[in-house]
Design a protein around this nucleic acid. Sequence first.
RNA 1: GGAGAAAUGGCAGAGUGGUCGAAUGCGGCGGUCUUGAAAACCGUUGAGGUGCGAGCCUCCGGGGGUUCGAAUCCCUCUUUCUCCGCCA
Length: 422
Amino acid sequence: MLQVNYIRENLDLVVERLAVKNFDAAEIVKQVIELDDQRKSTQSELDNIKAESNSLAKQIGMLFKEGKIKEANETKTRTAELKIKDKELKEKLDQVKADLEKALYEIPNIPHASVPAGKSDADNEVISEEGKIPQLSKKALPHWELADKYKIIDFDLGSKVTGAGFPFYRGKGARIQRALINFFLDEAADAGYLEYQTPLMVNEASGYGTGQLPDKEGQMYHVGEDNLYLIPTAEIPVTNIYRDVILKEADFPVKNVAYSQCFRREAGSYGKDVRGLNRLHQFDKVEIVQIQHPDKSYETLEEMKAHVANLLRKLGLPFRVLRLCGGDVSFTSALTFDFEVYSAAQERWLEVSSVSNFENYQANRMKLRFKGNNGKTQLAHTLNGSALALPRILAALLENNQCEEGIRIPKVLQKYTGFDMI
RNA sequence: GGAGAAAUGGCAGAGUGGUCGAAUGCGGCGGUCUUGAAAACCGUUGAGGUGCGAGCCUCCGGGGGUUCGAAUCCCUCUUUCUCCGCCA
């Protein structure tokens, strides 16, 4: 969430910038400042009451020691009054704080200056495109038919055992999944990322820490009995490692990577978007996360972008990079680049990675700070990106690499698959 | 799942009702000494709110309670450890 003092000092700028995200902040920003003023005044009133109580308590202690029982008891009547006020003020303060927090949770992150205005994904800005789009024969099949033809992914079986969006991978299909995961993890390790295996369920505090809660509550699977959420991305456990942590400046950059299965309810999706591997409820993803000094986070964003581009290059997939417009950039992100690969049989671009800088928005929620060389404690910046999400990569590989003899496996994957053709 | 014990500053560890935000040791930082380093010695060293500042206030796992006063007593939750049971 945004820092109240930042909002206070940059009122007009905040409203103006949030308009790029099509968010009218004028009212809520006023509300935040009013609530914060109330918080301050209530707090200081309470502090005064407490100061008086504390000093009276000390006096009473002294009086008892000196055997002045009568005076001590007289003083006690005054503290009784203070206790009542103390309780009232405490309740008021708790309420004001809760209201303030709730209001802050409703304000999205401020978009970076380079984020273009726009309403939807149609307004995203294509900033680069590379790789050759393959010319397939007329007999070319979409990946769900290839999956069936070679018996490598069974969607019907998934529907039977669990439900739509939970496919079974089989034989070479399962093997290529494992190959992709290992390839992505090895590439990340070579780039200096520390590998984690994390819990696939997280508690409420972690959900709030990275901002999925309360914003995307309905998109996560929730295990009611234990109040845990299935992770929609490894970003949550990996970033929350640093919740309530104060790093040293020398710790930067923190570079972590995790493979995990991801679970998304995808409520409201339909049609051709969800066909085959295009959108699943459970999928595999390798996620890179960095925590960086505020002065260097945009350099880091470029570095992460380059890492993702390199993966796609090595896999031989044609891809393009988009700078998300204000209407499409996520609630918590300041700047996001999406990577899309071209899936030749479907003749469409598929999003396979999203690389974002959250600046201190997540850090403020989870109190992720660092002690600077100047001795001051301040908020760090968090970044993350998919490197990469598997299903659409697999879809594009299957479609783009199909030929008479079968499906060609990219050279870089062969040492992991142990075969060069499906 | 059952029984018991515990949770204190970066770490270890004292404190069981009153000048305790907290002894002591280690670690960190600064200094003295040294050609340099080590050792030794001296000093310093948690987070947050508020205020121009002096200061005031909060935090001893979380929440609630008792009391004039709680790290210390009570309740509750969470976590850890030991024993029993079950188990990949």
